[in-house]
Design a protein around this nucleic acid. Structure first.
Lengths: 136, 136
DNA sequence: GTAGATGCAAAGTATTTGCGACAAG
DNA sequence: CTTGTCGCAAATACTTTGCATCTAC
């Protein structure tokens, strides 16, 4: 296991309040990609007095600190997930909404090559695949 | 040159009102990826009485009819562009906002392969590269 | 002790919708 | 004619913010 979100906050000099600790824990425990509403629901079960404004402020802060990453999948609300060493992209089941994480080194390399070709250094990228389960 | 947006509307049985003709023309003439505000501005110069609600309704209708495609680039408003036979992805200059269109057959193939690998048929995908211009 | 965080409600954005008037086919 | 569209303003959905209070360090 690598660093916890709390540890990352300390490393980055982010002040750890009770609210932030709870949000950090909920995000650490999440195996999915919750949106702010879902996150607020989970957090509320632990401390019902936390306001949604704090949740918004915190995910934004964590994102700016490189602790969380934000996804804006098609037509939905912004979703967050913990950012860690292993980069991956997403395959989204358009029927069920299920999200599969995948890595493809070859695609990564090609992306860099495309950027190079146009005279750019790649600083970020977004790759989302939308699919339907095969009958087979 | 291929079909105009107007022709596509007729082909798809979309009723052609004056407002829609104007929006169709502005989108056909656009070489960029305007958001609704920008589109509304351009349209207003031709007919100042068109309301923004109509612009929203029309881009949505055109998108559902497969005439326009919607992009939700990072942190911005939804942008639209005409959908035509040549599929492409986008490389966005994070400093200037400039958008470069590119095609990479190899990446396309690999995406399909990844979907296959997880038992999915690819129905759609989104690939956006964000880069900064190289000094050199 | 002090700078920064929180809760609340109000304010912003972006987009959608109800409704009566109007126009395309 | 009749069904669908338009303009308007109000409503909605998501997110941000001002301010007084509170808290981590």
């Amino acid at each position: 296991m690598s660093e916890t979100i709390e540890q990352k906050c300390i490393a980055k000099g982010v002040k750890l309040t009770d609210q932030r600790k709870i949000i950090a824990k909920v995000m650490s425990d999440a195996n999915d990609h919750p949106n702010v509403d879902e996150l607020y629901n989970r957090v509320s079960k632990i401390d019902s007095k936390i306001s949604i404004a704090t949740v918004y402020r915190t995910v934004k802060l964590f994102e700016e600190s490189g602790i969380l990453t934000k996804h804006e999948f098609k037509g939905g609300k912004a979703r967050y997930e913990e950012l860690n060493e292993s980069h991956h992209d997403h395959l989204i089941d358009v029927k069920s909404g299920e999200i599969i994480e995948f890595v493809d080194e070859e695609i990564e390399k090609l992306q860099k090559k495309v950027a190079e070709k146009y005279g750019y250094d790649l600083v970020d990228h977004k790759l989302e695949l939308y699919g339907v389960k095969k009958k087979s």
